[in-house]
Nucleic acid binder design. Sequence first.
DNA 1: AGAGACTTTATAGTAGCTTCAAGGTCAAGC
DNA 2: GCTTGACCTTGAAGCTACTATAAAGTCTCT
Lengths: 154, 154
Amino acid sequence: MTNRYRIGDLATQLAVPTQTIRYYEHEGLLSKPARTEGNYRVYGIAERERLTFILHCRALDMTLDEIRHLLRLRDAPGQGCAEVNAVLDAHIGHVAERIRLLNDLQLQLKDLRARCESPSTSKDCGILQGLASFPTAQDGGASRAGVHGRRAQE
Amino acid sequence: MTNRYRIGDLATQLAVPTQTIRYYEHEGLLSKPARTEGNYRVYGIAERERLTFILHCRALDMTLDEIRHLLRLRDAPGQGCAEVNAVLDAHIGHVAERIRLLNDLQLQLKDLRARCESPSTSKDCGILQGLASFPTAQDGGASRAGVHGRRAQE
DNA sequence: AGAGACTTTATAGTAGCTTCAAGGTCAAGC
DNA sequence: GCTTGACCTTGAAGCTACTATAAAGTCTCT
């Protein structure tokens, strides 16, 4: 039968590390699976679908908490999906806000960058001086935008 | 004199937690300050300015590594500031890339959201179905955009 | 029987803090 | 002189979502 998977099968099929699958189990997103005699995890179709769901949510950059929330809703099939909409709308809001902050940030960075077009010594560098005297974020501030990703490095 | 600060003074003036100042010291961004008889840290104007510099860089969402780099350049005043420009340009590149990823993400989320405008039960919810069957990120994927900030929550 | 690919658990590391615990210091008030 | 309370000290743990490592057990093939 095709609906019995070991952790490595699932990992290969869905292109996710095995450790991540165990981590999701540890975090309660996946429930504890059956085991073979040799104590290997065994997964079926339902678990494969659940993991797919989780991975899609992650690809949309939801937190594990948001995903936990959606999974709870998914597990209560008669409930009406207004709450699903609410979770998604909140997430869309997070993303929109983040984009706004990053655009502000980009403006400030370009402004700063424009202070040093001509070569000079760092003692007189307009950028370094700007960084020492610029108004701080808390005054009308950009809070924090989160530029550095975990998968999208360099 | 106004140029002797304890850690709490500095923290209040620059609106940063005292623990964060100690953390920057631990990470080598600030050097070990003088101490009072009672072993309290004492800071002067130069340290205050250095911390201001660091906080401005953080407000522009640079990593501590990027900031360390800029501080090294700042500490070598005769060096020419081409490298300062390079650090900043690289950072501007990071931000631009992040904005691009988030815009992709926003499109996908809105697409998904459009699947459930009419109220229904979660069993039939187009969003939950979409999340279970959507193409995964790895096929042409958005890698990871990083939506959830540390200071800008909810 | 032995090699090699797979699995198991537990543990530590990543970034940039934040929070906690257990205690030491200092100025003011009674 | 003694207490109260605000401040300071260090060290360790917690946060997110993994990733990496180690040491050991299992399975499959030859």
